[in-house]
Simulated scan of single mutants.
Amino acid sequence: MKINVNNRDPVYVQVIRYFKEQIATGNFEPGQEIPSRRELANRIKINPNTAQRAYKEMEEQGLIYTERNLPSRITKDEKVLNEVRSELISEAVNDFVTSIRSINVPIDEVLEMIKEKYSTENKGQEGKS
């Protein structure tokens, strides 16, 4: 588990984002056990209170659940899992559109470049399989 801590966002928010990205990409499976709060704090060298805050927020968002004294797990709720993926896609698109608008690139040119890049990337991925 590797989280690049930056100075822009609070650490607990970065931990939550990391978990969302891992869920969206399928690296964390529904129902998968996750490290304890203390274990996470030790692994990524953060304050245990920060790990606790991140887990509390993730539980409130429905990303993880904890039953009694058992280890926390990734949600199995398909609706929540789909929302995480949609949220990350939406954020990426918004960031992209904002940066493209700032340099006044026509939409047709952008779309053509995206299609070209996407198909080139897919061909490169197919060769790696």
Results as ranks from 00 to 15, higher is better:
32 Q>W: 01
47 N>Q: 08
19 F>I: 07
38 R>S: 07
90 S>D: 10
76 K>F: 04
67 E>H: 15
28 F>Y: 12
103 I>T: 04
124 G>A: 13
20 K>M: 07
65 Y>A: 14
29 E>S: 05
42 N>I: 05
4 N>T: 10
79 K>W: 14
85 R>N: 03
33 E>D: 09
12 Y>S: 13
103 I>S: 04
51 A>P: 11
122 N>E: 15
119 S>T: 09
58 M>S: 13
81 L>I: 00
35 P>I: 00
105 V>I: 15
55 Y>W: 15
112 E>C: 15
69 N>S: 07
94 N>I: 01
63 L>G: 00
88 L>F: 05
46 I>G: 04
63 L>A: 00
100 I>E: 00
49 N>S: 09
30 P>Y: 02
101 R>H: 12
48 P>R: 11
10 P>I: 00
31 G>E: 00
68 R>L: 12
112 E>S: 14
114 I>V: 08
128 K>I: 12
90 S>K: 12
103 I>V: 10
11 V>I: 06
37 R>Q: 08
91 E>R: 05
128 K>C: 02
8 R>L: 10
8 R>G: 08
108 D>W: 14
92 A>P: 03
17 R>E: 09
87 E>A: 10
11 V>M: 01
59 E>R: 13
70 L>A: 06
71 P>V: 04
10 P>C: 05
42 N>D: 15
78 E>A: 10
108 D>K: 12
72 S>F: 05
25 T>L: 11
10 P>Q: 05
121 E>G: 09
39 E>I: 02
116 E>S: 11
60 E>P: 08
3 I>W: 08
38 R>Q: 09
32 Q>F: 02
105 V>Q: 06
59 E>H: 06
26 G>L: 06
103 I>E: 04
24 A>M: 01
70 L>E: 07
48 P>N: 03
13 V>I: 13
118 Y>L: 14
64 I>S: 00
90 S>H: 13
100 I>D: 03
78 E>Q: 08
40 L>Q: 04
63 L>I: 00
123 K>S: 03
127 G>F: 14
49 N>V: 02
68 R>K: 11
2 K>D: 13
25 T>G: 15
54 A>S: 04
33 E>P: 08
106 P>W: 02
53 R>A: 06
104 N>L: 08
38 R>M: 07
24 A>Q: 05
95 D>R: 05
5 V>S: 04
63 L>E: 00
117 K>M: 13
57 E>H: 10
25 T>N: 11
11 V>K: 00
58 M>H: 10
116 E>F: 09
45 K>T: 08
96 F>A: 04
62 G>I: 03
65 Y>S: 08
114 I>A: 12
16 I>Q: 02
96 F>N: 03
1 M>Y: 09
103 I>C: 06
121 E>F: 09
86 S>P: 06
85 R>M: 11
28 F>K: 00
73 R>P: 13
100 I>H: 01
125 Q>P: 03
107 I>A: 07
100 I>G: 10
79 K>Q: 14
123 K>F: 02
57 E>Y: 12
65 Y>N: 03
44 I>F: 03
3 I>A: 06
24 A>G: 00
9 D>Y: 06
9 D>C: 01
27 N>W: 02
110 V>W: 09
102 S>K: 01
112 E>H: 14
74 I>Y: 03
99 S>K: 03
111 L>A: 14
121 E>D: 06
9 D>P: 04
105 V>W: 04
22 Q>N: 12
72 S>N: 02
